[in-house]
Design a protein around this nucleic acid. Structure first.
Lengths: 206, 206
DNA sequence: GTCTCAACTATCCAAAAGGATATTCCGCTC
DNA sequence: GAGCGGAATATCCTTTTGGATAGTTGAGAC
């Protein structure tokens, strides 16, 4: 029997999740509704084979709650789950020592397998979740602020072109490119063209 | 019963893997030793719930064999496994449509779970595998060619610093930095400092 | 010891980049 | 049509880069 503790403040989630896992067989389940209760149960029982924490739940306070739970569970696997969290949060959770991260969009059957997986000490994150387009990048905080022309020039910078070359390519005068570069640097808060190019690259613009 | 086909040219791997999966229960296993045999079995049986292919096996020819197997299995899950492949290959395999990628370093128990997972159509790659340092980056075709000093200077470039600033930081003369930049550009085949910085960034050096 | 090589330094020069200001041209609004 | 703002241009100037050539130093090879 795999001993699992699930902590989620939504009754609905807790119950349906619990029912599904129970039904799959081989699990001894405990359900609680906040972090305090979860830690208390861990202390009592000297740790579960796997603890599943909702990312946003009374007492969690982001990843601080994760650390608390990991301590209470005596180093045995603790995973996070969330209906809204994005890839970035998942990665931070893993770096903080979580054994896995489950988006609630996951199919219930897959979820049972994931639980088995993590209970035996294997890290787990759904591949689809890791590959989904990074939301923070969709509305590039940069691209919106730059004119089309400036984007073209920035593209030239990223290819290591000189102002003169960019000017030829865009059929403009060199001075104009200089201007563009200057405003680019201002908008991107870059010290110079090289810095601007790096910022663009960092943001994944090119 | 989950119907699984495992194709690997090493008898040892095939047998131990097979024994382990068989032992876990719930699987109907078929073992073959090359891609041709695998495809033949898929055609005969109208597809397995999951097909596991060794990355280097007679008939595979890299990822070409994967495509062939996916077709033969009528769109049902096909995964790759390998004892030597790195992250890059794994990603390519996933992009080519593999349902998962298993390094042979994986624990046998985890492996059984992974098979269950993939058989129900969920993508799977071990997190530890994805997070391991990218081998292609260890011996950066670049890093090896550059002296430690040049790497420091390149770091400065990537932060958009002027020669003078880098010189102050490294406690050298500006002319020296100029030299370093010049040789950097030569070694990286860059047109100028901006280009050099972009190449470094592209290679993941900073 | 001498030789060699790499890293650093020194001067000098030309080109590119960066910055300031003013002008023209165009499309827009009022 | 007057007024306005953005994009492109022109002129002028300073700083930074890029490049060539040559001299110094220190470590290691012979």
């Amino acid at each position: 029997m795999i001993r699992v503790l699930i902590a989620d403040d939504h009754v609905l989630v807790r119950e349906t999740l619990g029912a599904f896992v129970e039904n799959a067989g081989g699990f001894e389940l405990t359900l609680v509704e906040d972090l305090d209760a979860a830690c208390a149960r861990m202390e009592e029982t000297r740790g579960y084979d796997l603890v599943l924490l909702d990312y946003q739940m009374p007492g969690m306070d982001g990843l601080a709650g994760l650390s608390r739970a990991m301590e209470a569970n005596r180093g045995k696997p603790v995973a996070m789950m969330s209906g809204v969290a994005n890839r970035k949060i998942a990665q931070e959770a893993m770096e903080a020592g979580a054994i896995g991260f489950l988006p609630k969009t996951m199919g219930a059957n897959s979820l049972v397998n994931a639980i088995r997986f993590m209970a035996m000490g294997e890290q787990f994150i759904p591949v689809a979740f890791m590959n989904e387009p990074d939301e923070s990048g969709i509305d590039h905080p940069l691209a919106g602020k730059l004119s089309p022309r400036e984007l073209e020039v920035l593209g030239g910078l990223c290819r290591g072109m000189a102002n003169k070359e960019i000017a030829r390519e865009l059929d403009l005068q060199e001075v104009t490119i200089k201007m563009n570069v200057k405003t680019l640097c201002r908008k991107l808060e870059a010290k110079n063209r090289t810095h601007a190019a790096m910022i663009a690259k960092e943001a994944g613009l090119f």
